[in-house]
Design a protein around this nucleic acid. Structure first.
Length: 415
DNA sequence: TAACTTAGGCGAACCACCTC
DNA sequence: GAGGTGGTTCGCCTAAGTTA
């Protein structure tokens, strides 16, 4: 059962003291709000009846609200007798665009098709967060019937969104849209032209962004500094040949055998069976001894589980970067909101050649090995878990442990 | 009330595989 | 080999809520 009511929103008061009017849609005990584009002072509004009080000076508001109430009654009747089970998103769409919009779009819209794809991805336990993001973006930009997506629509989207978004972000979004469109094209019933690609020659170019690699000198400074425990996680990622944080978080004691770690990168889960094989040098062992948790099956249980505690994990990651790593090199936080005691109190600030980023440990490992020390790039790639697929490597026996360890030791400065 | 945590949208990069 | 395509993680930023 869908219910709705016009309400004065309780926050977002503007500079004149007025609050926005919104439609509160309730479905299965959940509320969502749809902005009505009008505002009202607290003292001129009756929240119980959902109407302006008689003393309200804005006379147009009376008509507006009663028209809105009539419209909503129609929409509720329509929704509550609709033969198909609609998602909350679709219901909100009806409140935003009206019944006619939905009826006319009896052919599936882009946003509706995203719903279908997202459900399928969820069922397959694949990641779908980007799909949600892009779906929201299309919803804001303006939904379109699948069959109306053509070169011109894509071009318009690209030019309009290009004013608000960065180049690479737009590129990622549009690739996702292209993928989704092609999924629809493969299915029956959507009436889409096979082989037609409205995205062809219609994509923004990608622009390379700088990496954040540190030098050997920087690493030495970090090693000599009196770092708080969490900061050592960054160093450990470097000692482990630029291991990703997610792999560190998932590392189990059973992955460690005879002083070596053998693991599959989470990033390549389900695709590459490639096993990364690295030695644990004394510098890394010291950090394991300090932060490792013998009572847990995961070595670094201090890091929330990336899958079982997804939200906590991303919070941990954000805090690690913004509260522990960045204060080491930055004078001030990007935003006051991130004020941490270390921004305010005297703290050992390190003069490094670049700021510390999580991905930076990976870039640093590669950069020191390849540029500073000019070591064998193929060995470095293997240490970092990059699969080699060139012909040379296919016909070559895998690198032995001692070849890997020699390069690894030089890069991390282990005697 | 300062310090800290949580949540989510947006943005960027990387990797494997494929095709020409 | 270069570039396209699809899949994935991680960083940055904003806006809140919670705790000592």
């Amino acid at each position: 059962m869908v219910t709705s009511k016009v309400v004065r929103f309780h926050k977002n008061q503007d500079e004149t003291g007025r609050y926005p009017l919104k439609t509160r849609v309730t479905y299965k005990g959940n509320h969502r709000y749809v902005d009505l584009g009008r505002k009202v002072h607290k003292e001129f509004w009756n929240q119980k009846t959902g109407r302006p009080l008689d003393n309200c000076p804005d006379e147009t508001l009376f008509d507006f609200v009663s028209e809105e109430a009539k419209k909503q009654l129609k929409i509720r009747n329509y929704l509550n007798t609709h033969p198909d089970k609609l998602s909350f998103d679709q219901i909100i769409d009806v409140f935003k665009n009206g019944i006619n919009g939905v009826v006319a779009k009896s052919k599936t819209s882009f946003v509706q098709f995203y719903d279908i794809i997202i459900k399928e991805l969820q069922a397959q336990k694949k990641s779908y967060s980007l799909y949600i993001t892009v779906q929201n973006c299309i919803r804001k930009y303006g939904d379109v019937a699948l069959k109306d997506i053509d070169y011109e629509w894509v071009l318009e989207f690209r030019l309009t969104m290009g004013k608000h978004m960065g180049n690479n972000g737009l590129h990622a979004y549009m690739r996702n849209m292209r993928t989704t469109y092609k999924h629809a094209q493969l299915r029956k019933g959507y009436d889409l032209l096979r082989g037609y690609n409205p995205f062809e020659k219609n994509m923004p170019s990608k622009v390379a962004t700088p990496t954040h690699a540190l030098s050997r000198k920087d690493i030495e400074k970090l090693e000599e500094a009196n770092l708080r425990p969490y900061v050592k996680i960054w160093l450990l990622m470097f000692y482990f040949a630029g291991m990703d944080l997610i792999d560190l978080a998932l590392l189990k004691w059973t992955d460690i055998k005879e002083g070596r770690i053998k693991f599959r990168r989470a990033k390549l889960a389900g695709r590459s069976g490639y096993v990364v094989n690295i030695r644990i040098f004394p510098k890394a062992q010291a950090i394991i001894d300090e932060l490792g948790d013998k009572t847990s099956d995961r070595v670094f249980s201090v890091i929330p589980h990336p899958e079982k505690q997804e939200k906590k994990y991303s919070s941990f990651r954000a805090n690690l970067l913004q509260r522990y790593l960045q204060p080491l090199t930055r004078e001030k936080p990007a935003r006051d909101h991130y004020l941490h005691k270390n921004w305010l109190k005297p703290f050992e600030r390190l003069e490094l050649s670049d700021e510390l980023y999580l991905k930076g440990s990976r870039a640093t490992f590669k950069s020191i090995g390849r540029v500073e020390l000019r070591l064998d790039i193929e060995v470095i790639k293997v240490l970092m878990g990059h699969q080699l697929n060139n012909v040379d490597h296919t016909y070559q026996t895998p690198f032995t442990d001692d070849i890997l360890d020699e390069v690894h030791a030089k890069i991390i400065g282990e005697a």
